[in-house]
Amino acid sequence: MTASSRWILALSLFASPALAAPQQGPGARPPEFSSPEVKEDRTVVVRLFAPEADEVRFSSSDLPSDTPFGRGVAMTKDDRGVWEATLGPVPPGSYRYTFQVDGIPVVDPRNPTTSESNMNTWSLVTVPGSPVSDLKDVPHGAVAEVHYRSESLDRFRRMHVYTPPGYESGEGEYPVLYLLHGATDSDASWSSVGRAGLVLDNLIAAGEAEPMIVVMPMGHTGPFSFGPGGSSFERQMEEFVTDFIADVRPLVERTYRVSDDRRHRAIAGLSMGGAQTLEIAMRQLADYGYVGVFSSGVFGLDRQGPGGGGDARGPSWQQRHQAALDDPDLRDGLHLLWFATGREDFLLNTTRATVDLFKEKGFDVTFEETDGGHTWINWREHYLPDFARQLFR
């Protein structure tokens, strides 16, 4: 057989479906299917090809825990080796998920949309229908991934920055909101699962929020765990606050056209980011006109021990910030101190204790005790838009 004949035979074998189609079994090419599939009735079908697996479960910490699918769903396998589960109807919004394949978490290989956390990545599915976080036909701003060198931590770091529609071609200064994420998440979380850019686009287009710059820094300074006695949390809290004050905010103020007065500077955060928000704000209260705390407060304030309650290792949070808490000029210049936490949230008592402390000190505090728990449904669909509507007015 000549060389050209061998090439013709090889090409014909490759082109013939009957001859080239792989057989089922280990290493086989998966059949055609899509995942996730979002249907008009807001049910979501997820699928995974895993012919050798004994068990596959759908898992998501973002879905409502009081629904049949909120704590995970066992998937069923068909004769092609494709596992499938139907969820819903699912409330509008974005949700992170993974598959547990014989106990091992994996992302959905058919879904290119992901959400990065501090130490892992999630698949991400969006169910349309949200009045605040849907992609709509309105002017859009931009979310940039910004790398910088943190001199205080002696390493490169990253943050995400939203600029409103018209910023690049316009002039003038803008107010700024520093928006902090929660424990185990990353600087990408607010713009992926939190859809902060789209939330602001929609609010600005509707005239419900002022055009603003939103800075979303990385709140972790390394691999994270609460650790014995909360040592990792406490260490990273101090490292992040130092990085924020010495590096993040100065970089933003050098690079972006942001206002430099208190009336046009806000800071807010969820969960861990809410605790960081209070720490930063109370160290520099003269610099912030608006402070938002979502599903959080001073950790430990509702009990004795590590954190806000103080212990033998050092003064309590209240003792450390006594001067700011007692200064009437700092207090009177704060336009908004806003808390929101769900009634099913495990940090509700922490929020209540923190609100009580500020009220005892004479602060004008707004506290929204809402439905729901410690989930992105509250932070994305309610707390961020509700807080943003009150800023810089």
Rank of each mutant, 00 (worst) to 15 (best):
L63I: 02
F367M: 12
E234S: 15
S35Q: 10
F226A: 06
Y148R: 08
R389K: 15
P315C: 06
K361Q: 14
H147A: 13
R57Q: 15
G314K: 09
M119P: 00
A196L: 07
G310R: 09
G72C: 05
G229I: 02
G103A: 12
S231R: 14
E360F: 04
D260N: 10
V82K: 04
N111W: 07
A323C: 00
F49V: 02
T221Y: 02
E37D: 13
H382V: 15
F240M: 07
G297H: 01
V355Q: 07
G273Q: 03
V248D: 04
R331P: 00
S61M: 13
Q284K: 12
M237G: 14
R331K: 13
G197R: 03
T255D: 03
A340L: 08
L203H: 07
L200D: 01
S316I: 09
P164Y: 04
R235H: 08
W190A: 02
S35H: 07
D356K: 15
D371R: 11
D386E: 14
D329G: 04
P131E: 14
S115L: 01
P91Q: 13
G88S: 05
R71P: 00
T366I: 12
Q24I: 08
S94M: 09
Q23L: 12
W122T: 00
G166D: 04
G222Y: 08
P250G: 05
T163P: 06
V193P: 02
G269N: 08
F69N: 01
T86A: 11
G27A: 10
S152A: 15
V365Y: 02
A85I: 04
G129H: 09
L384G: 02
G333N: 06
F58N: 03
P139E: 03
E234G: 07
P92I: 11
M218A: 13
V355N: 10
F240K: 03
A50R: 08
V248Y: 04
Q24A: 14
F49R: 04
M159C: 02
F244K: 05
R149K: 14
T163I: 05
T113R: 15
R47W: 06
L357V: 01
P91G: 02
D332W: 00
A3P: 01
V214G: 07
R155Q: 14
E55N: 07
H160A: 10
D326L: 09
P165S: 05
D79G: 12
P64W: 08
T350L: 09
M272G: 02
H382S: 14
G172L: 11
A20P: 03
V143Q: 00
L13Q: 05
G310H: 09
D329F: 05
V199E: 05
Y162G: 04
A340R: 13
D154F: 11
R29N: 13
A353P: 02
F224R: 00
